[in-house]
Design a protein around this nucleic acid. Sequence first.
RNA 1: GGGCUGUUAGCUCAGUUUGGUUAGAGCGUCUGGUUUACACCCAGAAGGCCGCUGGUUCGAGUCCGGCACAGCCCACCA
Length: 1039
Amino acid sequence: MAEKVGIGEFFPVMSNQEQLINDLPSQYDHLAAQERQTKFWEEKGFFHSDVNPNKRPYAVVIPPPNVTGALHLAHALNDSLQDTLVRMKRMQGFETLWVPGVDHAGIATQAIVEKRLLEQEGKTRWDLGREALVQRIWDWKDQYQARILSQLKAMGCSCDWRRMRFTLDDVCAKAVRAFFFKLFDDGLIYRGKRLVNWDVNLQTAVSDDEVFHETTAGHFWYLNYPVVDPQPGEPEFVTIATTRPETMLGDVAVAVHPDPEAEFSRIESELREKIVSGSERDKEEAEKELEVLSLRRTEILPTLVRLAAMAGAGRKVILPIQNREIPLITDIWAKPDKGTGVVKITPAHDPNDYEVGLRQNLPMVNLLNRDGTYNENAGKYEGLPIKKVRAAILEDLEAQGFLVKVEDRTIEIATSDRSKTAIEPYLNDQWFVKMDGLSQTAMDAVTSGEVEIKPTRYIKGYLDWLSEKRDWPIGRQLWWGHQIPIWYCPDVDESVLKTAFAGREDVLWRRNEADDGWLLCSLSENLKEDAVAGCTIERDEDVLDTWFSSALWPHSTLGWPDKTPELEYYYPTSALITSRDIISLWVARMVLAGYYNTGKKPFDQVYIHPKILDKYGEGMSKSKGNGVDPVAVMEKFGADALRFALVYLTTENQDVRLALDFECPHCSAVVEQTKKNRTQHIIECPKCKQSFATQWAETPEERALPLGPVVGERFEVARNFCNKLWNASRFVMINLEGFQPCTITFDELCVEDRWILSRLASVAKRVTESLEQYKFSEAARALYDFAWDEFCSFYVEISKARLSDPERRGVVQNVLIGVLDTLLRLLHPITPFVTEEVWRRLADFAPVRGLEELAQASESITVAPWPIVDEAWIDPNIEAQFAQFQEALRCVRDARARQNVPPRTEVSFAIKCSAEVAELLLPMSEFFKSMACSVATELGPGVVPPALSSNATTSAMEIYVDVADLIDIPAEIQKKEKEIEKLNGFIKSKEAKLSGSFVEKAPAQVVEKERASLEDLRSQRDANLQMLQSLQTAADAKK
RNA sequence: GGGCUGUUAGCUCAGUUUGGUUAGAGCGUCUGGUUUACACCCAGAAGGCCGCUGGUUCGAGUCCGGCACAGCCCACCA
């Protein structure tokens, strides 16, 4: 950093200046800049935040990425958006903290490590034992945490790295125990036998949210259960239909609807209702259903009615194979319009049957072992896995004549999100948190507006989910996670416990409902086996659901339950930025846990961003393997390009679709990314037949191959933009020789200066507002358009003439540097590296910036003040004036292009326009020369159209370009004819409009505007007609 | 079954909140170009029943109803 020099004292030494210029490559070197600036930022500690009573805090906690694997582009989007906000807030002068961290992701991480263990060593977790397995997972975690952090740093994320947290570290563990202890103390934790989603592969319960449903081809088997002592007129069998015949071993009843007749009628009248009032499609469907129903009415209903009566009389049926008598019961769960109208009840293996079992006080016969094999209740099928049981049972049923029919049917199979294997409903002891009160606070927080969710359409889903208030199953039969702080104590007199824990407030006890013992809950790390005199206490082996610790993230990372200064200062945090699929799993739980633990909301606002989709429109995910490593993108395009592309694509209601391909590092051919090759470790280039590595490369041989970068159009566009910015900056720096900062008075400013400053002021305002409303794309667009189309294409071009004029050089230098400075700062949150790179170089060229109100020099752009521009600069008149110039310029350029005038050939032109417009254009006339190699000979109302020219009209001007003998008359005539035809079309429609009721009904100013517009179109048409005429005259003359 | 989102140029998407001249951008295509930063560039051009349909209105890409197609989420399915 050069020493700061006062105004007027800075005269760069020539050689130094040359040196600096030589140091500016014509292509932005993103790798060098990233390396340099990352180091600089880290050394200076700009991103570290501490409690500062003199500033307002702005805090964000990162959604902690799972340590299951490396980050992909979905994370890159999430983190780019957060960093954009955080960097802006830091520049705005907030004491800004972004807490980084990673999540242990219990079930997911353990599943991955177990899978590898099995694949690579053929071992299960039981072969290894708890301690050894957990050690393996820690190793995995260390490896991926390091990789994740390096990815975040490579992206330029301005996290406070000194405040790094891991959901399983001591600070988080303390918070987890405190939360559990408080819940236990308040009686909100209970243990009970419940039907849970059992992952037989991982041998753990999983929550509903971790289960997804897959449609597959299956069958519908019809089974006959013999009726015990059938009376005359009664059926000998009841027929039930099932998709899961093997569960019949656990049947405890067969149910029929209590009043099938009434239910039938109810369904029919519902369908009739639909036919009357529903849509076309509904009608058709309802009619079909009615038809089916009327068939069933004659075929099935009488049997059902009889069965219902039999059930009322306490009759029974025989369960085949088991030869067990089970009751025929009535229950509304049996729908007369589905299946055979009779349903088997298997409470231990079906959620609905479980409900029936509870209602009807039925026994529950559990057939499953934890590992998915059948147990002793399955009789001769004991020890067999489910699939084999099914096959064997079907064979036996068929042999014994109980299998009457098989139909093909598509069925939905519940599948574990983690292990990708089937979920079995399974009766198991499980820990739950009572949710009604907790859910209510989380609902109130959002309905009252205390916590804002944006976009607002996500509020409904959040509220709907919470309003179910389903108790939260928090136990997982895993080894990787926070072990539940519960110990089982045999039945002793309570006085024994009182003695054992006298004076300790960190131990609670409660009667265990399952047996006659006690449940002990401890706030501290551990209880010894012999903590209670005369008996051995045993710790519950289960661990807590990952979301139990994630729910605490905003306050646990700040030190809760301790009353830390950080918690006091930064909490509630300001914003949470996340993706929609964890609104209920995570956001809702953070809100309820936040209020419960701290009495305060966890954050003011939640912003839900779009999802990243691949070229097939599928969401990117680790499990699909279509997640692209941001590093593979940044290698080629740079971190700024990655970030800019993602921010640019973040609109309010559309997901981000990215079509990506590989680039062969050997021959630069684009290798299409397909579903097949996207998970390969190495790919052979179809063009040059050489192999290259992908992000999945693992073995040393694979890694030795060069990495094939991931390419995509959006990244290219963004990379080009960064390069454009770099080169505009380069232009400014190259032209800084002799620069002296000065305060420029309004009178010294030319039209173009006032125009660019007006535009800059609008853009600055818009960017700030957009980012504060999470309208990321809008901000990026505004900056892209301004930088490229206004600053580069016009202001920089125009400045060239003045830069070569010593008289006018000073002012234009000051405006150039002032605009560039503000532009850099506005762009910095999105593209931090290139802006910092330029900013620091600029400090070498010009230690003190011009335009004081625009800039204050500082060491790093990361802590430079956010631009607040004077809205008084916004000048619609100047913008309108400049627009006239732009339009005229475009017409002249078009005329030249159309007539193939060589670029160096100077042409002259005349513009017929009002005196006012002429006055506006006059000061701009020199720029026609530099920007279109054309000279204005005449401007004003008195211009007489030349006999032969290439010309154009706008609403305010007629432009005649003298292209002399270069003119292609037929082409020009054709163009005119087309133009006139177009104008006539507009005129016609306007005339029609103005002769209708529009004139009376529309507001006067709108009518006036239309009249003026019609007038203008007519005069344009007339001018074109004249032009056409003279062209035709010229054509005739040539003949 | 309930909910959400999308359908605009060959492709990827803005614009719809608050209705008002001739609907925009990037990529791709075509024409021309190395002029005091940038070929990752410059200048220019072509390319649109704004999914369909009905309504409200003087006026609809924009507001309202219906339909179609695509995608996502939740619930359920003997």
